[in-house]
């Protein structure tokens, strides 16, 4: 874990549609994903138009949070001082059961202990008022 001396982790200041996503997740306390309310297709990251039917109508719909590791960055080196104390750390790309993929931090797992395809769960944790941090845990 980070020590008091170490640099802080970067927390973005979301705007526009991206802010709407974070606020929706924070309000619900669980993962929400942008969904076209005309054709029903999920999309992530957020886009103004549905790339399938070109509708501008959307909501942020609940998803199960369960999925599988689609890929990952297994980091043994970082230029980010906020992450230096965490090495090695794993950033997971999770394919949700509903289809879209999200990026989050795979916690309590060492390199070599997790592989592609492994079932996981995604949860959200507030970082300030406007950013929902995504945690990934082995299911």
């Amino acid at each position: 874990m980070s020590t008091a001396k170490s640099a802080r982790k970067y927390v973005p200041k979301p705007e526009g549609l991206n802010l709407e996503f974070h606020l929706a997740c924070l309000e619900a306390g669980t993962l929400r994903i942008q969904r076209c309310t005309d054709c029903g297709q999920f999309r992530h990251p957020q886009r103004w138009y549905c790339p399938s039917c070109h509708s501008r109508n959307y909501d942020f719909a609940p998803v199960s949070g369960s999925g599988r590791i689609y890929s990952m960055a297994v980091n043994h080196f970082t230029v980010d001082r906020g992450w230096a104390d965490e090495l090695p750390y794993i950033t997971a790309v999770v394919e949700l059961d509903e289809g879209p993929r999200v990026v989050g931090s795979l916690r309590d797992v060492q390199p070599g202990q997790a592989g592609l395809g492994q079932p996981v769960r995604v949860s959200v944790e507030p970082r300030g008022e406007e950013f929902a941090y995504l945690w990934v845990d082995l299911a």
């Binding site: 982790k9 970067y10 927390v11 973005p12 979301p14 991206n18 990251p45 960055a73 980091n75 970082t78 230029v79 980010d80 906020g82 992450w83 965490e86 750390y89 950033t91 990026v103 989050g104 931090s105 970082r127 950013f131 941090y133 995504l134």
Partner: peptide, 15 residues
């Protein structure tokens, strides 16, 4: 910067 960097992924080798 919104989807990768918050998770410590911010250089080409990581992307």
């Amino acid at each position: 910067r919104n989807f990768y960097a918050p998770y410590g992924v911010r250089s080409a080798v990581q992307w």
